[in-house]
Write a protein that binds this DNA or RNA. Structure first.
Lengths: 117, 117
DNA sequence: TGACAAAAGGCATATATCTTCCTATTCTTT
DNA sequence: AAAGAATAGGAAGATATATGCCTTTTGTCA
């Protein structure tokens, strides 16, 4: 769905919100699976039937500068006997994009635009 | 299915045979996924619909001394961007068990026992 | 306003291993 | 021979990430 430059699709808003929520809970970095659970647990879920959609969004956002990512140290993953994670952090740009998406679109006439939550 | 000590169930025979085949192809060590493909490609497949059965058998056989196992170096897996593998090698005991399973059961009276292939 | 193209969403599947739950089979004991 | 115990097998899901294909949505341009 071809996008207006700088606009966020609903999934991206959810991802940013989830990351920030998790960060407020003390987790500076989140990984995809955790974000999926965070989103799924809060909203009606099923938004991520197969997780492909989420990972595609994460990659897209990282490429676009809304998120920063790094791979987990493989030795740590090995010690915990699980696949390696990829951690994401919301960048300043990401925070700005979220604020912009939540605020009413800039308008001269202060009209009745419903805030997006 | 409670088992006679030292006997092999069909899946175990397949695993040992697959490992040995792969070893003859030059792969000294095999991992579960590879063995699954080897078995699946040869036999009618669907024996391993979910791979749980295979991994349970591998663990069981390793514990019983038919296989030796080691984890792949996590850094190598990371470099190849995939989950870590666990490698298995057939032990001398495993080879002996396979031979025994393939040979007719030892008997004093040479009866009509069908060989298990 | 209608059509097109680009991107987002959904589903399946690949890569790997492991666990839990339930059913089916078989060995052993009485 | 019947009953009981133990284990094998099968399905599904958890842990993590990623790609490919197809459908749907939406912004933009004519």
């Amino acid at each position: 769905m071809r996008r207006k430059k700088g606009a966020l699709v609903p999934l991206e808003i959810s991802i940013l919100a989830a990351c920030i929520n998790l960060a407020l809970s003390g987790l500076k970095e989140s990984h995809g699976f955790l974000i999926a659970k965070q989103i799924g647990d809060q909203q009606g879920a099923r938004m991520l039937t197969a997780h492909g959609t989420l990972y595609k969004a994460l990659g897209r956002m990282a490429k676009g500068g809304l998120l920063e990512s790094r791979w987990e140290d493989p030795v740590i993953a090995a010690e915990e006997s699980r696949p390696r994670r990829r951690f994401y952090r919301v960048t300043a740009e990401g925070q700005a994009a979220l604020r912009a998406a939540r605020a009413p679109a800039p308008r001269s006439t202060g009209a009745s635009v419903t805030a997006l939550v």
